[in-house]
Design a protein around this nucleic acid. Structure first.
Length: 550
RNA sequence: GCGCUUGUAGCUCAGUAGGAUAGAGCACCAGAUUCCUAAUCUGGGGGUCGCAGGUUCGAUUCCUGCCAAGCGCGCCA
């Protein structure tokens, strides 16, 4: 119906002035849920200047030219809105009309979580995990072939420190007196140390592990943690199509070519930046390779190689994204935590320089605070007050976890109120939505036979039909904007309208779905099936199964 | 200090490609169940949309400045 109205409006506008060209994308039509009407548009306000008319005059002209086919009444309201009142017999058309859902089968890569492989997943990873997975579902909903990718940074200093921490624990526990320092703390490191020791007992017979033996140990530990993370994710319904290790990117040796290309554009130079933060000892005067990211508004230029000639994290990350690009995706989406906000500029400017046509975007997830007993739980790695993700999922359940992580706009800070989530009533929207579905199912199951009765179009019924009709608009919007919370909110509001209609039967028996003999009108059946379809699709995108019974 | 994100009801948050009286849930108050699942529904009070300017027919939305919170500001990853 939205498109139909839009096309008619364009038609009217071209009759009013054939020289003015308005495209369908510029026309806004939205729903009303009160006595003002059923649909509304602001075109007369929006285009009054172009048509050199007062908004109210333009609105009147449009109404005069509009075909009334589906409408009882079209009227101007307020400063120049045009409101449409749908004919009663047109309401059920809204349910049966098949809108051609937009489909795009191109391949999309969505990279998310990508936690450092030096510890278990915690709460902060949980949000990105759900946002990434739901976004993937959403892209699949519109036909895309989606690759869910998980990147493992298994090189660099953090890995050396991680290894050192494990060996430190082994050394302490078994009095081996090995020369390793402790960087990472926490119970998981101790457990990991034990596993490594049990697995590599022989190595510790000799005085100190060789480089090669160290490598074996650290790879074992990383593998263990990555698998553990993947299991945690898998337990909440998230499965990756591709796990990429940074070492595999390094092995592809993409960097020389990349640097050459950047250099051709005049964006690479060799020299010195200021001293590294933890710079110690004598300064080597080796020149490093530097990317001129200040050309793109970054705060400073960024190092591509380190003093010792090895690539920085940034360099490998460019290579990783080049690798993804070369795998021929039409779109690359990354889900990042807010702590990477400042990193976007350098990476995107490097990528755009290399591939001006690249379609690369980042969805940021802000901090999640855990709230319990009305108090924000401050988390700190140092204090050991990290809430591990699998504990959270265990405590609140997968459904709640998935719903609440999708519930808030990704780039706003959010409080996850554990006490509220565990409530099984209206305060918990997922329960509320599921309950409405179970109610609709119970009607379908009780149905004796189908009859072709007319049913009364109450205000509640009209609202529900319109809201169901809005689904296509909402889901498309959510997809276009990469914002999954729109879906969670839509489900809550459509469920609310369902419950309203249900309860209106208490005061108005005509609103009952079933008659005294448990017969169901065909139109009502259409309504219930369409309602279930919308809820199933919506919950499906969130990765939640609707409940037939509660 | 610089950059990014955020600031909407007592609380948690929607909304903003400029548009009608700014919405929802919780909390608070008052009601609804002989009847398809009351795990629900109906009604009520509650707001200078952080502050101040600007752009215009119209600003919570766009621009500028300020204030507050969070995050980031390595040849770490």
């Amino acid at each position: 119906m939205f498109d139909q109205i839009k096309l008619s409006l364009i038609d009217c506008l071209s009759k009013i002035d054939a020289d003015i060209d308005i495209s369908i994308n510029e026309i806004e039509v939205s729903l009303l849920f009160d006595e003002k009407g059923d649909f509304t548009t602001n075109v007369a306000l929006k285009f009054s200047k172009i048509f050199k008319k007062k908004p109210s005059d333009l609105a009147k002209l449009i109404i005069d030219n509009f075909s009334f086919e589906n409408f009882d009444k079209i009227e101007m309201a307020g400063p120049g809105f045009i409101n449409f009142f749908l004919k009663d017999q047109s309401f059920f058309k809204l349910l049966s009309s098949h809108s051609n859902r937009f489909q795009d089968q191109s391949s999309v890569n969505i990279e998310f979580v990508s936690a450092n492989p030096t510890g278990p997943l915690h709460l902060a990873h949980g949000r990105g995990a759900i946002v990434g997975d739901v976004l993937s579902n959403l892209y699949q909903f519109f036909g895309h072939n989606v690759t869910r990718e998980y990147y493992v940074n298994n090189t660099g200093n953090q890995i050396n420190e991680f290894l050192s921490s494990i060996l430190f624990h082994i050394s302490t526990k078994h009095n081996l007196n090995l020369p390793y320092q402790q960087f990472y703390k926490g119970d998981y490191i101790q457990e990991l140390a034990k596993k490594c020791f049990d697995n590599f007992k022989d190595i510790f017979d000799s005085p100190k592990p060789t480089k090669n033996e160290e490598l074996q140990i650290v790879n074992f530990a990383i593998e263990y943690l990555v698998n553990q993370s993947l299991k945690t994710l898998n337990d909440s319904g998230i499965n990756f199509d591709q796990i990429t290790y940074e070492t595999s990117i390094v092995e592809k040796k993409l960097l020389p070519e990349i640097i050459k290309n950047l250099e051709k554009k005049g964006l690479v130079y060799y020299g010195q930046l200021h001293d590294p933060k933890d710079f110690q000892g004598t300064r080597k005067d080796n020149e490093i390779t530097i990317f001129k990211s200040t050309n793109f508004g970054d705060d400073e230029d960024r190092a591509i190689t380190k003093n010792d000639g090895t690539p920085t994290y940034f360099a490998n990350d460019i290579a990783f994204h080049v690798d993804k690009y070369q795998r021929k995706y039409s779109k690359l989406i990354n889900i990042w935590g807010a702590d990477h906000l400042g990193y976007l500029k350098r990476l995107s400017s490097a990528l755009v320089t290399l591939y001006p046509e690249i379609n690369f975007s980042v969805v940021f997830c802000q901090i999640v605070n855990l709230k319990r007993n009305n108090e924000i739980q401050k988390m700190s790695k140092r204090e050991g007050t990290i809430f591990e993700l699998d504990e959270l999922v265990k405590e609140i359940g997968i459904e709640n976890y998935r719903y609440f992580m999708s519930y808030r706009k990704n780039d706003t800070h959010m409080d996850l109120d554990i006490d509220l989530i565990k409530k099984e009533n209206k305060e918990n929207p997922i329960y509320y939505i599921q309950y409405s579905f179970a109610r609709s199912q119970s009607v379908l199951e009780r149905t004796n036979k189908l009859i072709s009765n007319d049913i009364e179009l109450s205000l509640e019924l009209k609202n529900l039909i319109k809201k169901i009709h809005e689904w296509e608009l909402v889901v498309f919007n959510s997809y276009k904007r990469n914002e999954v919370h729109l879906i969670a909110h839509y489900l809550e509001s459509v469920a609310s309208m369902f419950h309203s209609l249900w309860s209106s039967a208490k005061s108005n028996p005509n609103s009952r779905f079933l008659d005294d003999d448990n017969n169901l009108s065909e139109n009502t059946q259409l309504l219930l099936k369409k309602y279930q379809l919308v809820i199933s699709e919506g919950l499906g995108i969130l990765g939640i199964k609707p409940k037939l019974k509660m």
